[in-house]
Amino acid sequence: MIGMPTKKGTPIVLLKENGTRIDGRKPDEIRPLKISVGVLRNADGSAFIELGRNKIIVAVYGPREVHPRHLALPDRAIIRCRYHMAPFSVPERKSPAPSRREIELSKVIREALAPAIFLEKFPRTTIDIFIEVLQADGSTRVASITAASVALADAGIPMKDLVAAVAVGKVDSQLILDLNHYEDQYGEGDMPIAMMPSLGEITLLQADGIFTPSEVRAALDMAKMGIEKIYNVQKEALRKKYSSLLFR
């Protein structure tokens, strides 16, 4: 499953003639996915996700008092979200200072999770979501959303649904599901999608690269399929923790 290293400048084959991908997957296959719940003692909720070589840890604190106070809303909770990549998470060391990319991703991740949360149940409070990408291997924003949603549930925050997310990519004019680092870096497009699977509502949609209208349609279908699988892993991870508590 580990991606092969490539020298800069050498062309790499993302899609082999037999239709398999650089890591041996089929076009519509997601990478091995593992989610662990409640991995941090101090946080109200937490989750650790491994998607392929991605390793991302998420902590949720709250609902808790807002500081500074003027940010608090009288009728609902606010959500604050920080997506951050550790300097050692990528091949070339990344500056620890938040980049423009991280600022944008913190915003879109927050907006992807917010629709699922009953914010009006917790006026004047904040729900803080902290995401640390420890190792990045493509599709980090969607893996972060998947994990953050589980961490929110672990914090006992009432939600309409979990939010599960996946990226659809494009290599050699073919759509692929759950793109890895190489497919992200050298592919033709990236369309991260997050959904509340039971409600069938999309909470995050972005894209770069070129997609035809019919590819957009196909990408939404493909994402839905991947998201169902991820949703099952999320539910299983939560069940695993809480079923053991039930009979204590």
Partner: peptide, 14 residues
């Protein structure tokens, strides 16, 4: 399509 961006806390059916 050369870019897509959903914003704010609402949702969309596909």
């Amino acid at each position: 399509i050369c870019a897509l961006q959903k914003g704010l806390c609402g949702t969309f059916k596909p």
